[in-house]
Design a protein around this nucleic acid. Structure first.
Lengths: 121, 121
DNA sequence: TCCACATTTCAACGAATATGGAAATGTCTT
DNA sequence: AAGACATTTCCATATTCGTTGAAATGTGGA
């Protein structure tokens, strides 16, 4: 992961509403959630939610697909793991044995997800 | 970790220069680095650097101590691990077995560092 | 087609952020 | 005490960000 991408991801998460949105999606798992469900759970206006979803999407943190009238958003776990790996890269110059980058959340079926899927609509 | 603290930490890291500063400190390990060394390696003006260090410090991501004329900044690994744990909390409702929060960087001697040390000068 | 529903787009506003220059503070050496 | 060095504080400025309201788009059912 490049610094610029990490900054984008961190900036996307550095906002109370977006962080809660993302955590909700992380908890929802690879299936994702409809925008309306998220709006209901967090009490956000639909246009505000769209704004935040866009941020998360451009940062590569979520994907979207349409299901009837609803848009289903899902966390992109590979991006989250890459971000964590980037933060801890070469930690302590690798000196202490306990210090090693590691993926923290790998739900089945998304571990090797293609990056090109990140920004699709 | 509370949402508000996570947002503060993420916001602190969501800036190119600060992210590089933090990564430098993570790589430096618990010993830390003098502000001047960081300034030299990243080519930042001293006042700008102070501004960014303050951000990182208020977010609980780094600590400082004085050593002669120099200020030695060090990454607070426990904060980093808490942040990662917060992001991945209850991932996929705990369903997939591979999905579990985990500390990613635990250099010796700082694993159980007291939180009260986070904001000292 | 007409209507209801789900979400997005557009325009506008106040608040927060990053950076620069100049001056001040604290520390060491002589 | 004086000067050099390391870092911090203060002030000003241009840019970015989050939210709101109103209107538009796309989808499914009667």
């Amino acid at each position: 992961m490049e610094t610029i991408n990490a900054v984008a991801a961190l900036a996307a998460l550095a906002q109370e509403n977006r962080l809660e949105i993302f955590r909700l999606l992380v908890q929802a798992g690879p299936e994702g959630m409809a925008a309306g469900q998220v709006a209901e759970q967090l009490g956000l206006a639909p246009n505000t939610l769209t704004f935040h979803f866009d941020r998360l999407r451009f940062a590569g943190l979520v994907t979207v697909r349409r299901d009837g009238r609803s848009m289903i958003y899902a966390a992109r776990f590979s991006a989250m793991n890459e971000l964590v790996a980037f933060l801890t890269e070469n930690c302590c110059q690798g000196a202490p044995e306990q210090c090693a980058p590691a993926a923290v959340c790998k739900p089945k079926g998304v571990a090797h997800e293609a990056v090109s899927r990140a920004r699709r609509r």
